[in-house]
Amino acid sequence: MAEAPKPSSSVKLVLLGEAAVGKSSLVLRFVNNDFQENKEPTIGAAFLTQKCNLPTRTIKFEIWDTAGQERFASLAPMYYRNAQAALVVYDITKPTSLVKARHWVAELQRQASPGIVIALVGNKLDLAGESQSTSDEGEGEDGGDARKVSTEEAQAYAEEESLLFFETSAKTGHNVTEVFTAIANAIPETSLKSARGSGAAGTANRAGEEQRVNLSGPRDAGAKDGCAC
């Protein structure tokens, strides 16, 4: 990974969406390329980092994976306040989860940083019968189609609100990296320049936003300062 000094910047990203739609699974797939069948619900929020290599630069995602439970709703602003990107996730087999996703999008548009890049993600594509996922390594074991939210409906909504849109499967890995790469590409250059990933969760850290981007070396060498860049 010790590539020539490519500019590197941090992007603070938050995952939002109803509980059990697969937010943590998407992160697990992106960060560890792994999937767990019966994942226990997230408690509170988890903070993870992962690099994403673009042709011209390296993006280091600082990811907040939130629990999505009702009682934590009041904590959500803490996680999206300074976020440059958000993944709003729903479950294509559960229409109510899209309703919830719309609420999150509206809240982000109202409250988050104006330039925030939002991706709408319909997860659990492997459960859909039509199986465009036949090209993927794993296919839905039962032939039944559990899809309850059509691609068209979600896509139309995403266009209307100028959101990136993907249907994914954390289980098969379908489209997962693509979502993050698309987000990385969609972050405006200007926002990257001034972007200070780190302490951005707290207002107290605003002062740090002017600091220069940390050109940290390979992961192992910089492991401990990795996320605090």
């Binding site: 226990e40 997230t42 408690i43 509170g44 929020a45 988890a46 903070f47 993870l48 994976d65």
Partner: peptide, 16 residues
């Protein structure tokens, strides 16, 4: 005893 945190990887911030 439960998997919620252990299985997640990363760091956690938990209101309790």
């Amino acid at each position: 005893e439960s998997e919620g945190i252990k299985a997640g990887g990363g760091e956690n911030w938990i209101p309790l």
